[in-house]
Amino acid sequence: MAYARPVSTPASWDALAARYDEADDHGLGDPAVRAAWRELLTGLLPPAPARVADLGCGTGTLTLLLAEAGHRVDGVDFSPAMVRRARAKLAGRTGVTVERGDAADPPLVPSYDVVLCRHVLWALPDPAAALRRWVGLLAPTGRLVLVEGDWHTGAGLRASETVALVERAGCTAELHPLSERAELWGGPVPDERYAVVGRPAQLPKSR
């Protein structure tokens, strides 16, 4: 795979937690950016209430957005500082949890309608193995929703790579280009950004 794997540890993400929400597409503090993400996820997810696993949930921004839309959401992140901030953000809400755990092998019990992961797959040491585990979390009619990018910094995954990984995990793959959706990022971006929706391929019925 032609992408750079970062040195990713709980401590490295703890160090980013205090300022993580400052980016427009992380904190969704701008109402226009928040509305754009709400519209995007509404189009990619099944109607509420769906059971959603938000893997690598960070400070819980998308977790909260989905809970506000009426979904039942379980967030997972391996950074204690991120988990604390997510829990504070979600305090008082029902139907939502945030647990500390590895997104690559989440401590969750099937069956989920959606496994959502944003900007995490590319950073995992074995993305193919992680995808196989995520598919195992899905209900028979469930779907993967992966938001990724091939960033100008040289990190990330090309859309074709993510599609291939999803297909190797036994799913169909539907690509949604997002680079031109400046409203999602707080302005124009110089790199490839996209979402891939994966659905487990249906086995042919035996005669």
Rank of each mutant, 00 (worst) to 15 (best):
M82L: 05
M82S: 10
V83M: 07
V83G: 01
R85I: 11
A86C: 11
R87Q: 13
A91N: 04
A91V: 01
A91R: 14
G92R: 10
G92F: 13
R93T: 08
R93G: 13
T94I: 09
G95W: 03
G95R: 07
V96Q: 09
V96K: 10
V98G: 06
V98L: 08
V98T: 01
E99Q: 13
R100C: 08
R100F: 02
G101R: 10
G101L: 12
G101T: 12
G101Q: 14
D102Y: 12
D102G: 13
A103W: 03
A103P: 03
A103R: 10
A104C: 03
A104V: 00
D105V: 15
D105L: 14
P106I: 13
P107K: 09
L108W: 09
P110N: 09
P110M: 05
S111A: 14
Y112D: 05
Y112F: 15
Y112G: 14
D113I: 00
V114A: 11
V114H: 06
L116H: 11
L116F: 14
C117I: 01
C117R: 02
H119A: 08
L121F: 10
W122E: 02
W122P: 08
A123Q: 15
A123H: 08
L124C: 03
L124Y: 07
L124M: 13
P125W: 00
D126S: 05
D126P: 02
P127A: 11
P127T: 14
A128Q: 13
A129R: 14
A129H: 09
A129S: 11
A130C: 03
A130L: 04
L131N: 03
L131P: 00
R132D: 14
R132F: 00
R133D: 09
R133F: 02
W134Q: 05
V135P: 03
G136D: 07
G136C: 11
L137N: 10
L137Y: 06
A139H: 05
A139S: 15
P140A: 10
G142H: 08
R143S: 04
L144K: 08
L144E: 09
V145H: 05
V145C: 10
L146R: 12
L146S: 06
V147T: 05
E148D: 15
E148L: 05
G149E: 14
G149P: 01
D150W: 05
D150V: 01
D150F: 01
H152P: 06
H152N: 04
T153I: 02
T153H: 05
G154I: 06
G154M: 03
A155L: 13
A155T: 15
A155R: 13
A155H: 15
L157G: 02
L157W: 06
L157D: 02
R158S: 09
R158I: 00
S160N: 06
S160I: 00
E161S: 06
E161L: 00
T162C: 11
T162F: 00
T162K: 00
V163M: 02
A164K: 04
L165P: 06
V166K: 06
E167R: 14
R168K: 12
A169K: 07
C171Y: 01
T172V: 10
T172S: 15
A173S: 06
E174F: 03
E174Q: 14
E174L: 09
E174Y: 07
L175W: 05
L175T: 01
H176W: 07
H176Y: 12
H176F: 13
L178S: 11
S179W: 03
